[in-house]
Amino acid sequence: MKSKLLAVTIGTLLATQLTGCMGQMGLSQLVTKGNLSAVDNRYGRAGLFMLLSPVYGIAATGDLFIFNTIEFWTGKNPITDKAPAVVDMPVEAIFKINPHVSDDLKSAPVKLTQAQIAYPDEQTVTMTLAYEDGSTQLLSGHKVGNDVDFFLDDAFITRVSNQELIAYSQSRLR
């Protein structure tokens, strides 16, 4: 009995941690709105914030473990009554994906099991991708002047300049 309870508890914690962090934080928004509506000057709001700090903590915990998880799984936040805005919002991506590439390549989860990198020559890098279903794909990058062309199974994906790749790799090291 204890092992089943432990398994359910761990599963619940994992499900909430993996899905609840990126929501609208609707309950926390309500607390903040109440604070901002109660007093009309910064000192009063700061004082009220200090007094309400336990309420902010409880609201954020409720959002993280309950309401954002419900939002993720149902597609609607029960507090704001709105669809997910954070995880589904489009952003300016570093790498542009060719609009002609299949939608399967643009969505998650990708069930990748193995990736093997090879350097056939000084101008080329290849990565063989193996998936859970047994299929494989070949991702390759070919240096062309000051750019790198990326292909997936010989279908062009995008062209990225060397400067963009260097900037991206340096941003990942910070």
Rank of each mutant, 00 (worst) to 15 (best):
K33D: 15
R45I: 12
L138W: 07
T9S: 12
L139W: 09
Q116K: 14
T19V: 08
D103Q: 05
R174T: 10
A115W: 08
R42Y: 12
S102H: 05
L52Q: 01
S171L: 02
L152M: 15
F67T: 15
M50Y: 08
I157M: 08
T19Y: 08
G26K: 04
V87Q: 05
D40I: 12
Q163K: 10
K111Q: 12
I117M: 15
G134C: 03
S102C: 09
I117P: 08
I94E: 04
Q116I: 15
A115R: 07
Y131T: 04
L6K: 00
Y168V: 07
P78Y: 02
C21D: 13
Q163R: 01
I94L: 13
Q29C: 12
D63A: 03
Y43E: 04
S135Y: 04
G75A: 07
V160S: 03
L152N: 03
G141T: 14
D40N: 07
N77E: 09
D149E: 09
E164W: 02
V160A: 06
R172W: 06
T19P: 14
L5E: 04
N77W: 03
L6T: 09
L173V: 11
M89L: 13
T136I: 11
L173G: 03
P99Y: 00
L13Y: 07
D104G: 04
S28Q: 09
Y168H: 03
T74D: 14
T128F: 07
V87W: 08
Y43N: 04
P90I: 04
L105P: 02
V87K: 15
P99H: 00
F151W: 01
T9R: 01
L13S: 11
E132S: 08
G23V: 10
T12Q: 01
S161M: 03
I79R: 01
V148S: 00
A108V: 13
G75L: 10
L129F: 06
P99N: 00
I79Q: 01
A93V: 14
I70D: 14
R159C: 08
G11W: 06
D88P: 08
N41D: 13
I70W: 00
V8G: 09
I10A: 08
T128P: 02
F150G: 04
G57Q: 01
L30P: 00
V101L: 08
Y43P: 04
I97F: 06
T69E: 05
Q24D: 15
I97N: 13
A60Q: 07
M1W: 06
A115V: 14
L14R: 02
I70Y: 02
T12R: 00
G57H: 01
G11D: 05
V144K: 03
P54L: 14
A130I: 08
G11P: 12
P99Q: 00
I94T: 08
N162Y: 00
I70H: 04
D103V: 12
D153W: 07
T80Q: 04
A130G: 03
A60E: 04
D81L: 15
F150E: 06
Y43I: 13
F156W: 14
G44A: 05
P78R: 00
F67D: 05
F72C: 11
G57A: 10
G26L: 06
I97A: 11
A7D: 09
L173I: 09
